[in-house]
Design a protein around this nucleic acid. Structure first.
Length: 289
DNA sequence: CTAGGATCCTGTCAGC
DNA sequence: TGCTGACAGGATCCTA
């Protein structure tokens, strides 16, 4: 679930909260969630840098090791100190007592504050790597450039390698373009007036350009608004909410009306994923008409 | 090499 | 109420 904007939000939040703090203790509550080198190599080390590549968060330690966190579908990071900072998969873990029932790993810092890695479905993980391990990691080493680091020409050239595939499946492929997940795939297809189930061969150059620009736009907007953080998760009335409510044109809006043309937003299945679209703004079969 | 489907895991919700 | 199947903001592995 957490896509590029959510992970960037976490990176920025943690930069404020844990940069230069020393990890005193690592507690692993689920062995499956911890990969790579042992936790004893992390204990006693200061966090000296926070980076992001696609949906992966990278924490650099003073002993030159890296902790790579990937949140997959249901991962979230919750920092608890004087104030709380929570981002990632928006669920009650943002507010629960920590460690919570989905806490898989947590860190205690030298100032007594804590960082919790929660993950309901256990698909996510934290992996400790040395420089060589980072370079040879299969996910990181095959990761494509980010939308902002890819020209329209390169995006088009990459698309041409998958002419028979469905456009939505292609932009969800991290080897094709980094950071895109189900929300922003649907939102960018809407921005480009493209039906997500269209074959790449039927997508015009003009539409492909609109799609890439759409991806940059929806993701940048989400980053600017802070992704799905705790801040906008809890409304004044205590009910659940998220930035999706502010910006989504199609995602999880099935049954509601298109903000552009007034037709009903539909939900279907494309490339094995729930897919939302406006049948009028994103007509099937004439995507590049 | 690409394309598509199954799979990892837990929880929730709709439908009987 | 209790059960069952579908599905979920992801990526990988296996097969054709």
């Amino acid at each position: 679930m957490p896509e590029l904007p959510e992970v960037e939000t976490i990176r920025r939040g943690l930069e404020e909260k844990i940069l230069h703090k020393r990890v005193m203790r690592v507690v692993i509550l689920c062995d499956k969630s911890w990969r790579g080198l042992g936790k004893e190599l992390v204990e006693g080390q200061q966090i000296v840098r926070l980076e992001r590549r696609g949906k992966a968060l990278l924490m650099r330690l003073e002993n030159k090791l890296w902790m790579m966190a990937h949140l997959r579908m249901t991962g979230q990071m919750v920092y608890v100190g004087a104030e709380r900072f929570a981002a990632g998969h928006p669920d009650s873990g943002f507010l629960d007592e920590m460690p919570g029932r989905h806490t898989r790993i947590y860190f205690e810092f030298d100032d007594g504050t804590h960082l919790y890695f929660n993950d309901q479905r256990k698909f996510g993980f934290i992996k400790v790597l040395d420089e060589l391990g980072l370079q040879s990691d299969t996910f990181l080493s095959s990761l494509a450039p980010e939308p902002w680091d890819m020209s329209e020409d390169e995006f088009w050239a990459r698309l041409q390698r998958h002419k028979k595939a469905i456009i939505k499946a292609v932009i969800l492929d991290q080897k094709m373009i980094a950071g895109v997940g189900n929300i922003y795939a649907d939102e960018a297809c809407f921005a480009a007036g493209l039906y997500p189930g269209t074959r790449v061969a039927a997508v015009s150059r003009e539409t492909a350009d609109l799609l890439l620009r759409g991806l940059r736009e929806v993701m940048q907007r989400s980053i600017d608004s802070g992704g799905s953080t705790m801040k906008d998760y809890v409304r004044a009335d205590g009910t659940k909410g998220s930035y999706l409510e502010k910006f989504a044109q199609v995602f999880r809006r099935e049954g509601e009306l298109c903000r552009r043309c007034g037709n009903e937003i539909l939900k279907t299945r494309v490339a094995g994923r729930g897919t939302h679209y406006c049948p009028h703004c994103q007509p099937k079969g004439r995507s590049d008409a």
